[in-house]
């Protein structure tokens, strides 16, 4: 049997959803036999590969790099899962949307800084004006809310997908779970 090609990544998030993924614990071994992890913060690959079966995306779209990555992921994955509240609602990262971007930058890099820092311009991707959820930019196939989604829910999601079923996730997690 061909192993399912799985990719995971985080954009504007805290990596908590990936922690929850790892919390699946020993059942990860069970999953590992059926999958090939082709891209993830947990493996070494640098470039997002082609022909991915399932992409789990944590985090919202907050900067230009997030958006570029997301568009590539969408192009090269059969199923895209918005994993967790930041991906689904933009959640905490979007709390800056109530303020102007310049205000946010000034506040973080100068007003509250202990030393004379400057606004970062090089080597970091520019922030976008507003933080938005994944489905504001690309088609999302499945939404698993939660901050983070319980590992039980992530396990259910993956096992159902691997069994060739599109799971009903409504009772498995909720916003803020």
């Amino acid at each position: 049997m061909n192993k399912a090609r799985i990719a995971t990544t985080w954009l504007d998030g805290c990596s908590g959803c990936h922690m929850s993924l790892l919390d699946i614990d020993e059942r990860l071994v069970e999953l590992a036999e059926q999958i090939e992890l082709v891209y993830s913060p947990l493996v070494d690959t640098l470039d997002f590969p082609e022909a991915v079966d399932i992409a789990l995306v944590e985090g919202a779209v907050g900067n230009e790099d997030d958006l570029k990555k997301l568009q590539l992921i969408r192009k090269q994955s059969r199923l895209l899962v918005a994993l967790g509240d930041c991906a689904v609602t933009a959640n905490v990262p979007a709390m800056r949307n109530a303020f102007k971007l310049e205000e946010v930058l000034r506040h973080v890099y100068t007003a509250t800084a202990s030393s004379q820092l400057q606004l970062p311009k090089e080597e970091v991707p520019p922030l976008r004006d507003r933080v938005r959820p994944l489905h504001a930019y690309v088609e999302v196939d499945l939404f698993l809310p939660g901050c983070p989604p319980p590992s039980e829910a992530i396990f259910f999601l993956l096992s159902e997908l691997l069994a060739g079923r599109i799971p009903d996730l409504s009772a498995k997690s909720r916003f803020g779970a």
Binding site: A82, V88, T89, A90, A94, N97, A98, F99, R130, R132, P133, H135, A136, V140, F143, P145, L169, S170, A171, R174, F175, G176
Partner: peptide, 21 residues
Amino acid sequence: QELAVELGLSHVRYEYLHPRL
């Protein structure tokens, strides 16, 4: 939050307004 679960709301299709309150 409970109503979102009850009515099976998985995501919000409208743009969030993010008012400053």
